[in-house]
Design a protein around this nucleic acid. Structure first.
Length: 593
RNA sequence: GGGGGCGUGGUGUAGUUGGCCUAACACGCGGCCCUGUCAAGGCCGAGAACGCGGGUUCGAAACCCGUCGCUCCCGCCA
């Protein structure tokens, strides 16, 4: 071993001991005579002292050392002189008087500062990821990520779950997200796909009788990236047999509340978690993953608007739509330009516009004052409990457009006004999702969750008459405006599964080709089962206070899905292509003029 | 595919109603001084023609056009 102690463990109790430390030069303070170096390893910082009088050879090494040099030093631990203790350092009671020192490796001046948590251009950070990972912020994030995963494993293990690995190269399932494909060498012209999730495998494990499965599972989806979306990400994938929705919810809620209490006890969390139906979430927050750290709920004023002569409101209601408003505190003095920006936001979500009422000190100023009398405006103001200084904003349209427009506005204004308590973890369950969504382009129903999700038994009769009204046994776990997990009780009957596939316009031949193994498995004694899959990256990001999952992933991709350090993706040799029976098509003509 | 933001020495920023900018500040870097600092301190010094290309102008980091890169968002993510 190069060291007998770490840089994070020495205390006054170690005074007098001779120790050997090894680590990086975090910071050097050269007084001409004495040199102090904060030596860093993963476990902490220890101040080491070089004295030219007592150890001239070691001192020479100390004066050569620069930031990020790798050093090995031997010396005696001593309590620091009275008054020289550093209370900011775990090892601040002591220092090590170096008698022997050795440079294990020199270091070029790094392209950005390691010993400060300063914002650096992300391209540079990702190019030199191994240096960024040296910095305190990422070290802490990855350490917390480790503890989260360890807690999950231990907790589930204690409750009879077993972790089972499933294949990373498997069959393509084009019904879902875009697949990452892997060409087959042995089977010319055929491809594996990287899993979008272990969905089918975990259900087949239930058929196989494992009853309680989990996996820290990597999932890959070839879709465009976002702050909370990477092409590969990690889920706590879990599945249980002989359970109903209530069992899954209770288990996962217990896991996460225990985890928070153990690893982040300072965070504020309401328990038990609130439960909202999908309809309630959309009606009150305009989102199926509402940020419940603040209110600013949507208020229905359709009944009041029914009396209105204002054509926009009348027409929306006549078309079966609704009129809803939102109260934005302390924005009454927004300029025309700022109001226009908000209206552009709701328009981007499909609304045709918005009516504003600004409650200024000298009275209400509405963008629709020509079209509605003061008494009507007053009714809206009272319904929304408007106070002087507030800005009220109304959208009239179909329920879906109203929800999406005002939901986007609520999210934007919540962020802008910093309404959310950064210390809070506002978990909630969203349940009773619709089973299907209408796909207008393809003129058919799509599975809202996935095609293995079971419908609510009570809604079963609606499958034939009104698929859009069928609710599913599916549920999402949301926190602070993020969808952290979704899951469902699955179908375990061959007949029902085939019926659902048919409703999704997957014909019998295709069912057999794509999902024949699932249908057949259900004929061999498939137990009732269900599960869910919390996203580890998003959850850890929230715990770390990061708004980007790249900061909780050791080696993430940039928004172009490139690894700037590894230079992936990259071209490959012609030989490799030939073995895989592949040819690169000429790039698309870029003639645009 | 679309929309917004950003792009100035190694890093982070300032400068952006065009001229006082042959570019400023902090950190870092190099040298010298200094035996108690811990964001050590003091002195000296090197280092960017302002992403790239074109244009407007007597004059552009700053204005215009194009382009590239990064990022946030929409679409997309069963």
């Amino acid at each position: 071993m190069y060291k007998t102690k770490t840089c994070g463990e020495l205390t006054a109790l170690d005074a007098g001991k001779t120790v050997t430390l090894a680590g990086w030069v975090h910071r050097r303070r050269d007084h001409g005579g004495l040199i102090f170096i904060d030596l860093r390893d993963r476990f902490g910082l220890t101040q080491i002292v070089f004295n030219p009088q007592t150890a001239p050879d070691a001192h020479r090494v100390g004066s050569e050392a620069r930031n990020e040099y790798v050093l090995q030093v031997t010396g005696q631990v001593e309590k620091r002189p009275a008054g020289q203790e550093n209370p900011n350092l775990a090892t601040g009671e002591i220092e090590v008087y170096v008698t022997e020192a050795r440079i294990l490796n020199a270091a070029k001046t790094p392209p950005f500062v390691i010993n400060k948590n300063e914002d650096v251009d992300e391209t540079l950070r990702l190019t030199y990821r191994y240096l960024d990972l040296r910095r305190e912020r990422l070290q802490q994030n990855l350490a917390l990520r480790h503890r989260v995963i360890k807690f999950m494993r231990d907790w589930l293990d204690a409750r009879g779950f077993i972790e089972i690995e499933t294949p990373m190269i498997t069959a393509s399932t084009p019904e879902g997200a875009r697949d990452y494909l892997v060409p087959s060498r042995m089977q010319p012209g055929k491809f594996y796909a990287l899993p979008q999730s272990p969905q089918q495998f975990k259900q087949l494990l239930m058929v196989a009788g494992y009853e309680r499965y989990f996996q820290i599972a990597r999932c890959m989806r070839d879709e465009d990236l976002r702050a909370d979306r990477q092409p590969e990400f990690t889920q706590l994938d879990l599945e249980m047999a002989f359970v109903e929705q209530e069992d899954v919810l209770n288990l996962v809620e217990a896991l996460f509340t225990d985890l928070i209490h153990a690893l982040a006890p300072e965070r504020k969390m309401e328990t038990p978690w609130p439960r909202l139906t999908f309809d309630e979430a959309m009606a009150h927050y305009g989102s199926d993953k509402p940020d419940l750290r603040f209110g600013m709920r949507l208020t229905d004023v359709s009944d009041l608007a029914a009396q209105s002569q204002f054509a926009v409101f009348k027409n929306a209601l006549a078309a079966g739509g609704q009129v809803k408003g939102i109260r934005i505190p302390s924005c009454a003095e927004y300029s025309r330009r700022e109001l226009d920006a908000l209206i552009d936001l709701v328009k981007s979500k499909g609304a045709k516009g918005a009516v504003t009422i600004a409650l200024k000190a000298d009275g209400a100023h509405s963008s629709a004052s020509k079209h509605m009398p003061a008494s009507e405006q007053q009714a809206y103001i009272e319904r929304l409990d408007g106070q002087t200084g507030d800005l009220l904003l109304f959208v009239a349209d179909s329920a879906r457009v109203v929800a999406e427009a005002l939901g986007a506005l609520r999210k934007e204004m919540g962020a802008r006004l910093k309404l959310a308590d950064v210390n809070a973890l506002a978990f909630a369950w969203v349940i009773d999702f619709p089973m299907f969504e209408w796909n207008a382009d393809e003129k058919r129903w799509d599975a809202a969750h996935h095609p293995f999700t079971s419908p609510k038994p009570s809604d079963m009769p609606l499958l034939d008459s009104d698929p859009g009204a069928v609710r599913a046994n599916s549920y999402d776990m949301v926190c602070n405006g993020y969808e952290l997990a979704s899951g469902s009780i699955r179908i375990h009957s061959r007949e029902l599964q085939a019926k659902i596939f048919s409703l999704l316009k997957i014909d019998a031949a295709r069912q057999q080709a794509r999902f024949g193994h699932m249908l057949e498995a259900f004929e061999f004694g498939a137990p009732p089962h269900g599960g869910m899959a919390p996203g580890i990256d998003r959850f850890v990001a929230i715990l770390c206070g990061e708004d980007n999952i790249r900061d909780v992933i050791a080696f993430p991709k940039n928004q172009q899905a490139q690894d700037l350090m590894m230079h992936a993706p990259s071209e490959v040799d012609a030989d490799q292509l030939r073995l895989l029976h592949l040819q690169i098509a000429p790039p698309p003509a870029q003639s645009k003029i």
